[in-house]
Design a protein around this nucleic acid. Sequence first.
DNA 1: ATCCTCCCCTAC
DNA 2: TAAGGTAGGGGAGGAT
Length: 959
Amino acid sequence: MQTNKNDKKPTEMVKSGEGMKIGRKRKDKTTEDEDMGFGHWGGYMEAKKAKLLDQFHDSEIKKVSSLFEGIAIHVNGLTKPPLHELKNLMAAHGGIFHAYQVSSTTHIIASNLPNVKIKHLGSVPVVKPSWITDSIDLKKLLDYRRYLLYSNQSKSQPRIDFPAVEKPSTSGFSVDEKSSTSVESGPNIFEKAEVKPEVNSVGTTKVVAQQNPKFPTKTASDPSFLEEFYNNSRLHLISTLGAEFKQLVGEMRDRSDGKFPGRERLTHKDHQGTVYIHTVIMHIDMDCFFVSVGLKNHPDLRGKPVAITHARNGQLANVSSDQKADREREFALYGERLPAGAMSRVDKIDAQSSMSEIASCSYEARKFGIKNGMFLGQAVKLCPELKTLPYDFEGYKEVSNMLYKTIASYTLDIEAVSCDEMYVDITKILKESGYTVEQWANHIRNEISKVTGCPCSTGFGANRLQARLATRKAKPAGQYYLQADDVEAYMADIPLSDLPGVGRATLAKLKNLGLNTCGDVQVASLKVLQSELGQKAGETLKEQSNGIDNRPLNFHHERKSVSAEVNYGIRFQTIEECYNFLQSLSNEVYNRLSDINMRARCLTLKLLVRAADAPVETAKFLGHGVCDSLSKSTKTNLVINSSQIIFKEAKSLYEKLNPPFADLRGVGIQLSKLEKNAPTNTALSNFLKQAPERSVENTEKPVMIEKVDFKEKTDDKSSEKKISLNKKVVQTKQSSKRGRPKGSKNGTIKTTKNSTPTASLNRYFAKSKNIEVNQKSQQYIPVNSQIDMDVLKELPEELREEIIKEYQLNVKKVEAQDTTSKPASRIENKVSQSEKQVYQVEKILPPKPTNTVPMSRKSPFANLTWEQVKPIIKKWTQSGDEPSNIDIEMIADHFKHLAIDRKIEILQSAFNFLHRIFSVLTCNWHAAYFKIVDIMQQGMVARYGGTLAVKRKFECCEM
DNA sequence: ATCCTCCCCTAC
DNA sequence: TAAGGTAGGGGAGGAT
């Protein structure tokens, strides 16, 4: 329960999910090997780190026996053979592999487990991997009890040595939990571990909660809490799977070859149907997704009221009178905070009711009034014969993948909504195949049903809203096309609750206005709607009530924030526990950030704190109870790209909010203002590694000189003549202390054909040494300001003139020489010797008055946008032999990020670093200088919103 | 006016 | 027992 801190407006924290729930797939320690033959999907594999494609991979494994039929393993920790092999073995021998331990997991495979893990494994036997391999070797399913890693019993109890029970490995053999226990006579230590009826008739079966007092229940104080929580959280799974499919669609579109095997298979039936000219949007949604998947293994329950929950029974045993009193108190408080007119989830439950949430329920259950998100206790009151099924996260993932794979074989005009729902623009499909909407609907629904074994419903319309509302009518297991002519009439009777965006609060407000259907809203005053719901929401509601929806499908999803929050199991007894958890959460959220190769600029800490009048023990086991919610975000524009920074900022925000840690009930970290990380460039990073003294942190200030003293370069005789700056050069400390880059010898530059990018870079970096200084005079001077004809030629005429004028360049044509051994322009390689012309700077810029960045001075590139300049530089870098692999965009991007950092040292380092690179690229120290100023200014202006503060910040940065 | 922060609301 | 996450749209009200 949350309360707005300011207006104390009561709200109820209700998470009602439609149907699909699954848990975040923790990062598999194993990486699946490569592309498994799905050409269409193959490239995605590398990028996704084996997430969604795991299932596809599995499907490629040929089943050779049914040895492990009925067995579902979860591998915990490092094993020999490793996890992925065990996985493959299971697939090959008819077993099931669970990436997470779920309630249907029959065995945990582990080679060793720390105590902390053991105590939370519950009742599932932990078995050594050799059980699997030995069984395969002997072609018999061996009794796992010989392979137990440890005994689940209390240590005081004697370990019983069981005789091996070996069963023939006939294909129909099933090691069902119940049947395997029957092997033993009388009670034994394993019985408790194994008797766990999967299917419960909630109203009748009563299982006494078993809790080993030696192993107190896990809360967020436990280091392994986060992982276990995520492994069991349906909401987490829904979220992460949804995000993954959105990303998947984008990636597939990027990699698509434009061929769709499914679509090609559709026969052109002489185009007997209508040829659709107008856009047709399909909305496709699996019917009570979790239940449908669960029923695949429990066909006996088809047609019965079924719900997916964690809890197995609707009534709790052993509720103390204190607990009952607390519950009543919390429920009352809960009701107080409920928005006026809103439905409560707790008004039909009592102190004994289970508060396990129903993730999904069958249509038969819905007839009793049971809804997704309802507490099991309440549901059982509505329908005592309700059957419950445990979660099967792996199964949901598998079906989701099949669903998306099926649709993707027809089109990639897909907007992923969640793991079981998407919008598809089928206009092209209809046009090409000549199918009518109805023919297509039949076809695709059949195929999905065949492939997934689960029913789905499809709705069609001219926009997403219409398609979606059509699906409502189509459900369950049906299809409906809402035609343009019918929209108006169809909308009138639609209840407002059916509209997307109309949830509990909005519905209550509308109800108070006497509005119940879209028809009501159609004739209501827009002003009234807006004053009640807000500007935007009022407008949207009005439009939607008329069936209007102008939002196009979004095929490419771009993430705007990354977050991780936990509002369950938060019970800290010390501040250290709290900070430790914050650290875990920081790691988690950082991993997600780095998974998508981004960095952030803003961090928000979100806390749920027990309301002052709420009982300390919540009604729901380890729930958050009635809470106030607080949030606070960072105000600096600090680059957030490590878990250390995340933790530091989160901790600092926590200290600002400073709630009593014992009253914490929820913690979340959100990162926003995301930016793409500069793509990693191996050449560049290798280069930096090889020349650490020139890394960003160590580069020196730009060179300065007292007098305009020139002299010929000394490091390369043959190039000296080209350089007209025949003045005395004062060798500075800076240039002399710099390490010599690889590939250069005595500062001379070897030009080698087929040189590596790194060598190239080094070579040119060495050349940038030609910027030399005399530190007495504080003047900037480009000692090596050669401007190639080619460079000038690339620029537009006016710009060329402008540069020459602005820089007062008296360019002089110099006879080309043999320069193969000179540190001259990299361009010479692509210009024939006779054509080669090098212009030289004869007149140098006037002395710079101060050592600050001359803001008023215009860059030679000032009239060009960066976008215009980029292709020019790109051309230089791409067409020549060198520096061939420098990605100019990457460099610029890299610098933009550095440039917008507030820290002056970093800014300055950035400047120096960028300057070096650009000097190399342009062979024009001065142009490079101003280009960088531009880039950095752009970066800062973009970041700081063009305020005066930007200029001040920039100006005060010593360069 | 416009932006930023701290919420609320919604969807799955 | 129970696993109440996560991302995005948007608004109120203060800061600039």
